[in-house]
């Protein structure tokens, strides 16, 4: 965690690589699901799970690195790299990481569910800001209310999943053991 001695850096690197791979695959898998609603950019946010897990296990910088790398790798796998959709999910993922880090470290009141929902909202807003730039059309913000509505169920689902993952990591202490070793 905070105290990462030099000897642990290779192990940390391995865990980071694993998290990036997992997140990239989740990002890709999610692009395979047909979008059930006629709003571009609405999705479960499964890859966001890894961002939040990384925030819990590591520091903000590492979580951000993982988020950036998985967006690039995931888009590469999905074949959307450097398309408009890529810039939108990139902006969304980065905004979500920043907001979730703030909520997790500074506010501290929320559980994983609340953090996920706020992350989902941040993702939507980041996405819409980027969309305004690429489409030159601020009217796209009319989608925000519907997106907010979707952020509740999706945030709830990913939040509960993250809880299980975090609980597992804490119970088994595997990641910590590897890092402390």
């Amino acid at each position: 965690m905070a105290s990462t001695p030099k000897t642990a850096s290779t192990k940390k690197l391995a865990i980071i690589a694993m998290l990036v791979a997992q997140a990239a695959v989740l990002h890709y898998l999610e692009s395979l699901f047909p979008n059930p609603v006629p709003i571009p950019g609405v999705k479960l946010g499964l890859a966001n799970i890894i961002t939040l897990v990384a925030l819990v296990v590591f520091d903000f910088r590492t979580a951000m690195e993982i988020t950036v790398m998985r967006t690039i790798l995931g888009s590469l796998l999905a074949g959307t790299l450097f398309g408009m959709g890529f810039f939108m999910s990139f902006a969304g993922a980065v905004t979500a990481a920043v907001v979730m880090a703030l909520v997790l470290r500074v506010l501290k009141k929320f559980g994983m569910v609340g953090i996920s929902i706020l992350g989902a909202i941040a993702h939507n807003i980041g996405q819409l800001i980027m969309a305004t730039f690429v489409l030159h059309f601020a009217g796209i913000f009319l989608y925000l209310p519907a997106m907010l509505a979707f952020s509740i169920p999706t945030g709830l689902l990913t939040g509960l999943l993250i809880n299980e993952v975090v609980k597992y990591i804490k119970v088994t202490n595997r990641v910590q053991a590897i890092l402390d070793d």
Partner: peptide, 28 residues
Amino acid sequence: KTLRSIKKADLILVLVLGIIIALIWLWN
């Protein structure tokens, strides 16, 4: 057991969001 991990602040957040969304819809 899983649902017990939801904190009070989380519930308040959902409630506040619900009200905001309802207001936007009514206003529209």
